[in-house]
Simulated scan of single mutants.
Amino acid sequence: MRRSLKLAAAVLSGSLGIASLAACGAKSTDNNTASAGGGSGLKVGMAYDIGGRGDQSFNDSAARGLDKAKSDLGAVINEAEAKSGESEGDKEQRLKSLVTSGFNPVIAVGFVYQDAVNKVAKDNPNVKFAIIDSNSPDQPSNVTSLTFSEEQGSFLAGVAAANKSKTKHIGFIGGVQSELIKKFEAGYTAGAKSVDPSIAVEVTYLTTPPDFTGFADPGKGKQAAQGQLDKGADVIYSAAGSSGSGAIEAVATAQGTKWAIGVDSDQAKQPALDKYKDHILTSMVKNVDTAVFSFVKSVKDGNVQSGVKNFDLKDGGVSLATTGGYIDDIKAKIDAATQQITSGATKVPTAP
């Protein structure tokens, strides 16, 4: 979800534009927005999902792509933070503020922005927008959907979990019960069952729409993981944004050998989770940073692809982290499963 090309008619003054951004929780990473970025003229706005930069997961992966656009392409960047419990109007205003401040492209991080992106993009046809993790049939032509084959990476996470579980009992925690997160669940369960058809898989969702706080509540994540541990699960995979950090904490502090599986970013490398890294078996890495950077570059180069741009296992859109070396002993099994998926021999389900 990112791509917006609108420097055209910045009718409002820069000071008014930046003021409106501040009102929406946005922040420029440069004090002098007009001159920063090496004079490339590229101004990229990013509207984060709940949790924002610093969530150690999904938003942070998007932020890495934005940072690379700044360092490699000379882009001036501006970031707008989401608020818990906000309305659809809040999302629209956040995007409008980026547009009126001259940012183009504008990237929306998360499927919760779909309606807002459709409306604001329609009203601003000269601006390029990207939305991550969503695609709608009535999406305007100036919007690019950046999607991922999460089920494929999650399948590999399931293979790892089943091979490492001593109790033959594993768990999955989803932040919000949505079609997107069900892809993670479906792939994970299918991967585990491909190793051991009789393995037990606990499934817990933290919230259901319209409540999206399940992506930003480590306390809920910790409680859910503890519940699964109490039932006998010894490997738990969380697709829950920053709530997953709570699940990782519960696993890391449990008695006996228990493993957590991270998501989106390589969570064993996240500074805030450093004290738990010895309990993170692997992470299903979703390379949102790659998608964000490639989109911004396509805007700069003038060859933006509208519609859907999907990133799968074959092209490196998703992968399994090897930090810590904890899955080195099952590398051959992971490689075999990868080959089966990329060759098309294994069709990974996208729904439980």
Rank of each mutant, 00 (worst) to 15 (best):
Q226Y: 05
S238F: 07
A240K: 03
F212W: 10
G227L: 09
V285T: 10
K314C: 07
F111Y: 15
V348T: 09
L16Q: 15
K314M: 10
I18C: 07
S97K: 03
D335T: 13
I173K: 01
D335R: 04
D217G: 08
D133V: 00
F103I: 12
T338K: 13
T208E: 15
S134Y: 01
K277R: 07
A225T: 00
A332W: 14
S40A: 13
A82L: 11
Q228P: 01
Q93L: 05
A351S: 14
G232M: 13
S265C: 14
G74H: 15
K269N: 13
A260E: 04
K166N: 14
L320T: 05
S245F: 09
S87P: 03
V159D: 04
N303I: 08
I77A: 12
D264W: 10
D328L: 15
R3K: 12
G158N: 00
G174H: 06
P352N: 08
M1Y: 12
G219H: 10
G214S: 02
V143Y: 10
Q177E: 03
A34T: 01
S4D: 11
V112H: 04
K6N: 11
T257Y: 09
T189Y: 02
A22N: 14
T147S: 06
A69V: 05
K182V: 04
S242Q: 08
A240W: 03
K231N: 09
K222R: 15
G232W: 03
K222N: 10
G25N: 01
D278E: 15
N287L: 10
G14N: 10
S245Y: 06
Q152D: 03
L320D: 02
L180S: 04
K68A: 04
K333C: 02
I181D: 02
Y276F: 14
Q93G: 00
K286C: 02
F58G: 01
N303S: 15
D133Y: 00
